[in-house]
Design a protein around this nucleic acid. Structure first.
Ligand code: DGT
Ligand code: MG
Ligand code: MG
Ligand code: ZN
Length: 573
DNA sequence: GCCGTTTTCGGCCCGACTGTTTTCAGTCG
């Protein structure tokens, strides 16, 4: 018996899907991907399902995949995958990532020219060997070389918080055009996914040709990938791809629904439609018998006509939202306006850039009723952490300020570091006088799952800790979560009535959406904190709330939706 | 390979754009 994580198993299934696609097998790739997707978001270790003989309870897992899962869990290996790998060199799988190249082209290159790696492909394209194949020409070679170069240079997805302002600016530029009646961001940005592959924009106009000309000639556009009457793709700086879809007013709802996705959500909806002998596309919901349009102008009509409650974009990931919408069981999601305060911000007392006064002022202007100053404690030397006497000094400064500001309450706090043994780096007789104590890990990430979990559980048992900061430690595009039994942390949080953070810093979003989703099985609260190091940082609260919404959270699950009075009661302040 | 308040077998979302093609396959959204 070997231990293989859910994520690893999911990746094996994704790989099978890719290889089957190369092989030209139909439908199975989707089946494997669906199973893989569901396994990767499972809250429990897949071993549990195995032990209870319930593998087939996992959506998308039937007899055949269940058997394969058993083999992986028992032996750590899978014969079926090993055999597939023998037929297709690794390079082929890698080449699938190059834009414009799919299984058909790559297999042709492999079988007729023996191309089995990106390097070989480049060579062949440069030497004019590709154009000798039927169905390919000079332009194919030129495109391959260009896309191959981009593939080598750019591999990462964009971070939502970094791309949103750029996307909103593009949205504005388009809406400024006199022939554009309406514009909307769509795709993963509208669903507020934590990372973004490209910017998808929908525009309404009855003069699409003019819009496309305007769009593809915007100054920031480096390259036009494709340009048509209703759809164009361009590339801006840093390889930022932008897809623009232009449609008529009467299709706005169905087009926005289509372009917002997710793909899996779309397929599910379209299947529902076809069950009723209707057809759903970006052009509308159409009755196939009468060819009459049932809905199309507004998104809500589409959902309602299909017998569903309206589903907000953040939920459209095919994680059960369609079933819930059918039975009227969609959650009453937390909203931006439900947030009453921020319980984790920094100042220039440690590594923040603004004074306490400045950030309190900003928070008050945002309408917040409370704010907790939680600068780093001393052991975080790179962040100029506070020692005991500085903490004391800051506390008295904060209490002075608190008296001056009438409409906002300022709490004294600290972001203490959790050391390797799970102890906080601030003495208890200091901690006892602070309102908010955050415990966070900022070093020593490389522990075993057991060691790391114990370390955090120890910290959670500290008498004065209020909340656990960025619980998994992941940094988008930089660092994976530490090895951690998050369910154990959830259990302890419930037992000790401890709060876990949803850190809204754009690179963190930690807990993430899936973690939030799974946290609903446990009875503890989450605090959405910005961890702001600048005044602007307070605005990241929106990202945190979006993440919570993607995790199906309602306001009852979130600490900082409580009124000042209720918050104090809850934290015994 | 999976799945079913119409199915346990026969389906599996639907459409735009490109390059190379005289009518469409491949790839992508
Ligand atoms: N019906 C249908 N819609 C699709 C398909 N592929 C993409 N879409 C729709 C849903 C997507 O959200 C939307 C934009 O496509 P993208 O490839 O940009 O995906 P998305 O933005 O969701 O994710 P991304 O962060 O860009 O990788 O187009 C598909 O195969 N079928
Ligand atoms: Mg996209
Ligand atoms: Mg796109
Ligand atoms: Zn912090």
């Amino acid at each position: 018996m070997s231990h293989v994580s859910n994520k690893k198993i999911a990746n094996l299934l994704f790989e099978i899907a890719d290889l089957l696609e190369l092989k030209g097998v139909q439908f199975k790739p989707r089946a494997y991907r669906r199973a893989a997707q569901n396994i990767s978001t499972l809250s429990k270790d897949i071993k549990r399902f195995y032990e209870e003989k319930k593998l087939q309870d996992i959506e998308g897992v039937g007899e055949s995949i269940a058997e394969k899962l058993e083999e992986i869990i028992e032996t750590g290996d899978l014969e079926y995958l090993n055999d597939l790998r023998k037929d297709f060199p690794e390079g082929l799988q890698e080449m699938m990532n190059i834009q414009g190249l799919g299984p058909k082209s790559l297999m042709k290159f492999y079988e007729e020219l023996g191309l089995d790696s990106v390097d070989h492909l480049e060579e062949a394209a440069k030497n004019g060997e590709i154009r000798k194949l039927e169905g390919f020409g000079k332009t194919s070679e030129k495109n391959i070389l260009e896309n191959l170069e981009r593939y080598r240079k750019y591999k990462k997805r964009f971070i939502l918080g970094e791309i949103l302002p750029i996307a909103k600016n593009l949205e504005k530029q388009l809406s400024n055009h006199e022939d554009v009646k309406r514009v909307n961001l769509a795709g993963s940005i509208r669903r507020r996914k934590e990372t973004i592959g490209d910017v998808d924009i929908l525009a309404v106009s009855s003069n699409p040709k003019k819009i496309m000309d305007y769009f593809t000639n915007l100054p920031e556009i480096e390259r036009v990938v494709s340009k048509g009457i209703t759809k164009s793709t361009v590339i801006a700086q840093e390889n930022l791809h932008i897809d623009l879809r232009v449609i008529e007013e009467e299709s706005f709802g169905s087009a926005l629904q289509y372009f917002t996705g997710s793909k899996e959500h779309n397929i599910e909806l379209r299947t529902l439609a076809s069950d009723k002998e209707w057809k759903l596309s970006e052009y509308g919901l159409i009755d196939m018998k009468t060819t009459k349009t049932i809905a199309g102008k507004e998104e809500k009509e589409i959902y309602n006509s299909l017998g569903l409650d309206y589903i907000v974009p953040e939920l459209r990931e095919n994680r059960g939202e369609i079933q819930a919408a059918k039975s009227g069981d969609l959650p009453d999601l937390i909203k931006k306006g439900d947030i009453v305060g921020d319980l984790h911000v920094h100042t220039n007392w440690s590594d923040g850039s603004q004074s306490i006064d400045e950030i309190v002022q900003t928070a008050q202007n945002m309408g917040y009723k409370y704010l907790a100053i939680c600068d780093h404690a001393k052991s975080l030397q790179i962040a100029d952490g506070l020692n005991d006497s500085e903490i004391k000094k800051q506390m008295s400064e904060i209490s002075k300020l608190d008296k001056i500001y009438k409409s906002i309450t300022v709490f004294s706090g600290i972001e203490a570091n959790i050391d390797k043994k799970g102890k906080l780096d601030v003495r208890k007789n200091i901690l006892k006088d602070l309102d908010i104590v955050i415990g966070s890990i900022h070093s020593g990430f490389k522990l075993s799952e057991k060691e790391m979990t114990n370390r955090i559980v120890n910290a959670m048992h500290n008498d004065y800790i209020t909340l656990l900061g960025h619980p998994t430690g992941r940094l988008l595009n930089q660092r994976e979560s530490y090895n951690l039994d998050l369910n154990k942390i959830f259990e302890i949080a419930e037992k000790l009535e401890l709060v876990l953070e949803l850190n809204a810093y754009p690179q963190r979003l930690d807990l993430n959406d899936i973690n939030c989703f799974n946290s609903r099985d446990y009875n503890f609260l989450i605090s959405i904190n910005t961890d702001a190091h600048t005044k602007d940082g307070l605005k990241n609260m929106d990202l945190g709330v979006s993440t919570a919404r993607r995790g199906w959270l309602d306001k009852g699950k979130v600490l900082n939706t409580k009124s000042l009075e209720d918050l104090k009661k809850h934290l015994n302040l």
